[in-house]
Design a protein around this nucleic acid. Sequence first.
DNA 1: GAAGATTGAGCTCTCAATCTTT
DNA 2: AAAGATTGAGAGCTCAATCTTC
Lengths: 150, 150
Amino acid sequence: MPTDPGFELITAVVAASDALLRESQKFFRPHGLTAAQYNVLNLLSGSPPGLSQRELGDALVVDRSNVTGLLDRMEKAGWVKRSNDPVDRRVYRVSLTPAGRKLWTRLHPLYLEVVAQVTRNFSAAEMRAGAATLWALEAAASGWQLPVGP
Amino acid sequence: MPTDPGFELITAVVAASDALLRESQKFFRPHGLTAAQYNVLNLLSGSPPGLSQRELGDALVVDRSNVTGLLDRMEKAGWVKRSNDPVDRRVYRVSLTPAGRKLWTRLHPLYLEVVAQVTRNFSAAEMRAGAATLWALEAAASGWQLPVGP
DNA sequence: GAAGATTGAGCTCTCAATCTTT
DNA sequence: AAAGATTGAGAGCTCAATCTTC
């Protein structure tokens, strides 16, 4: 029996993502950080004034509670700092330290090169088609509802 | 500037996988298990004589050390059991208990239905093309090597 | 020595509950 | 009451080290 295409697609998505994550961890590890921490660096590098932890959590699509520990470790490493928001005393403004920006500046081109290597055997058209399918799949998954009435 | 297609693809893969995992956890949770535990159930359902923990780890593409705790929790829940291998005293034969098989038999069709719902807007051709790209990407990622000489 | 399984440390993540500020 | 951040419990994952058996 030929495998159900839907099942096949989902299995392939998860398998590819796992492999990508696993290898990226191996890449980042010698530099002392993790993939999640690199994502934070990357996000903050584009927002010099800083982001609130809530904004960070939304952008990373993770729970806010997760951001706390992630930033604790990064602050300890000296890459980010929490500042008080001038107008709302509930929020922290999170931004890169000079060391954090330096690390990102050094790592980013290397990471781009790894991405280029991993995807070098695909045509641009194939990658765009794949990405389009995946965004649609993500939307379909996120919109899935437990079978309970509205 | 148009986003680099390779970067776009990788971002889409991880985003889709995250969404898929997150939603599947919501599906499994009311039944008392996790997505990882369902995968074990699914694997064991196809191998009545049982699998070694090493085989389980290879099939799930996770570290062997991870399998230990996963099975501890599932054994505690009464879904799997460890038996001594008759010929090699180093290995455990892991198999489903009647309760584990019953759970899988009940859950599997429901899960297939969720998959069908999530993928209902895709053509079979689109899904097969996407899956093919993803398997190739997985292979490329797994084969990636740190830039060190042989 | 190599292989199967386990343990301990550390990271990421979720969920539920709490605290402070709005 | 609602929103931002934190804490504690629990799951999944990796890596390095250890124990037993081959």
